[in-house]
């Protein structure tokens, strides 16, 4: 009796297990989907190549820079300029100011988000402080550079691109901190 049911039962258990795996597969699939569609305004987390395309001087795009330390992040974190008008294809550099007002070392991670989401596909960062974690000792400040260009293929409907950074305190999760904190006697 039970023997008769084994093949089908095994198949169904396999489907269930595969779907459990699929739940986790949704995580990378989602990232791929976001990369393709610009859903959620995620930008690439690695550098784009610097050999940009031809500069399109026929139009201008306004880039807005927003910086927000998360509410648990004590750093002061501000863009040097809040607005910039660029031609698609031109390479620009802008800086963000970070200052750690506390007396301890804090590691920060900036998370970028671009709006409108689809424009994220055309916003290329050649160099960005958001690619890596940033470490700043207590009382110190620093300028963090961002080098970028806007893809000339940007659809005409986008005249403004907003780039927002949220800065998180990732000190406790940071891997290379152990040495430093023992040094500071914490």
């Amino acid at each position: 009796m039970a023997f008769k049911h084994k093949p089908l039962t095994t198949k169904l258990v396999f489907i269930a297990l595969a779907m459990f795996g699929f739940g986790f597969a949704l995580v990378p699939l989602y990232d791929v989907f976001c990369d393709l569609t610009g859903l959620n305004g995620k930008t690439a987390s690695t550098a784009a190549s610097a050999d940009a395309a031809i500069v399109d001087t026929s139009r201008e795009v306004v880039i807005e820079f927003i910086a927000r330390p998360n509410k648990q992040m004590p750093w002061v974190f501000e863009p040097e300029v809040t607005r910039m008008t660029v031609h698609p294809g031109e390479i620009h550099i802008t800086n963000y100011l970070a200052q750690n007002p506390t007396s301890r070392l804090i590691v920060g991670q900036a998370v970028p988000s671009v709006s409108p989401g689809q424009a994220a596909l055309y916003f290329h960062k050649i160099e960005c402080f958001c690619f890596t974690q940033q470490r700043l000792a207590g009382g110190k400040d620093m300028l963090m550079p961002l080098q970028f260009y806007v893809d000339p293929a940007l659809p005409r409907q986008f005249s403004t691109i907003t780039l927002s950074y949220t800065l998180y305190d990732v000190t406790s999760a940071s891997t290379d901190l152990t040495a430093t904190s023992s040094q500071l006697g914490e």
Partner: peptide, 14 residues
């Protein structure tokens, strides 16, 4: 049920 309950299990695991 066998298609989606495992996905819920995945979500709560995450």
């Amino acid at each position: 049920l066998i298609m989606v309950m495992p996905v819920l299990a995945g979500a709560v695991t995450m």
